[in-house]
């Protein structure tokens, strides 16, 4: 499998979707992210790895300005999405987040029906003209979220009633339904059991066909399994960013090597 993905990786190498330059993040007085430069490619799964508190989740949340919801958080530097600075004063974070969707660590379905959970995004963004179109969008999203078969008979049951893995796939389907261009995933499998994790990982691999996926993960195995590019963060610095195979087989920075081999982290 590893060889297969190596093969695909070369084929799928695409243009830069997001490029970050000199990004700094401060939480109050704490300097959480220091001078990060990174280019995230389209139709690629990029993994952010690193020990706890290294800033990988923080950096991920900069990419769709989720940090805006935290009062004491301050971001400097440039993050360009398709060549546009997303921290430009004229940018509406709401529009940005429609393009850059997010899936969270803990499955967080709204206390609504499964259908309403998925339909929520399309509704607020006005993606459907009528009920039939909306039904179609919901079905498509649930199918791509690889959960359609499990829930098609109970679309109007509450989303909170699903199992953990199903909830997370529902949340992914919910994120897909708004037709984003980039999908950010913040440790999407950390609250799931191994079987559910495998299902979600499979799903991520399929999503790569249409989206640029950025995934933060604690598990190096997961990064190796699902990603084509890997970035290693340590103490707020981006230590190394390269093809996943390079990072895991031939890291250039000693810190990366230490982490990979389990000496730090």
């Amino acid at each position: 499998m590893n060889d297969m993905s190596l093969l695909e990786r070369r084929v799928d190498t695409k243009d830069t979707k997001i490029s970050a330059r000199k990004v700094q993040v401060f939480y109050g007085d704490t300097h959480a992210i220091k001078d990060v430069d990174v280019d995230i490619q389209d139709k690629t799964v990029t993994a952010f790895i690193g020990p706890s508190g290294c800033g990988k989740s923080t950096f991920l949340r900069c990419l769709n300005r989720m940090n805006d919801t935290i009062d004491i958080c301050r971001v400097t530097g440039d993050i360009m999405l398709d060549g546009e600075d997303i921290y430009d004063r004229r940018v509406d974070p709401v529009q940005l987040r429609a393009k850059v969707g997010m899936v969270f660590q803990k499955p967080n379905p709204f206390p609504k029906s499964i259908y309403d959970n998925v339909a929520y995004g399309p509704k607020i963004h006005g993606l459907a003209k009528n009920k039939a179109e909306l039904d179609e969008i919901v079905e498509k999203a649930l199918r791509r979220g690889a959960i359609w078969n499990e829930v098609k008979d109970r679309l109007h049951a509450p989303g909170t009633g699903l199992s953990g893995g199903q909830q997370q796939r529902l949340c992914i389907a919910r994120a897909i339904a708004t037709e984003p261009e980039v999908l950010l995933m913040d440790e999407p499998c950390s609250a799931l059991d191994p079987i559910a994790t495998a299902q979600v990982e499979e799903l991520i691999d399929e999503l790569r066909q249409s989206y640029s996926v950025v995934i933060v993960t604690h598990s190096m195995q997961q990064a190796a399994r699902v990603s084509q590019k890997t970035a290693f963060f340590h103490l707020g610095n981006l230590v190394e960013y390269d093809d996943t195979s390079t990072i895991f087989t031939n890291p250039s920075d000693p810190r990366t090597e230490s982490y990979i081999t389990g000496r730090i982290g």
């Binding site: 695409k14 243009d15 830069t16 979707k17 389209d42 139709k43 999405l81 398709d82 060549g83 546009e84 997303i86 430009d88 004229r90 940018v91 509406d92 529009q95 940005l96 429609a98 393009k99 037709e179 261009e181």
Partner: peptide
């Protein structure tokens, strides 16, 4: 990149 994304939704800087 614009060409690569089928459902481009216009620029971020214009509402």
């Amino acid at each position: 990149s614009m060409g690569a994304t089928p459902a481009a939704k216009g620029s971020l800087t214009t509402e």
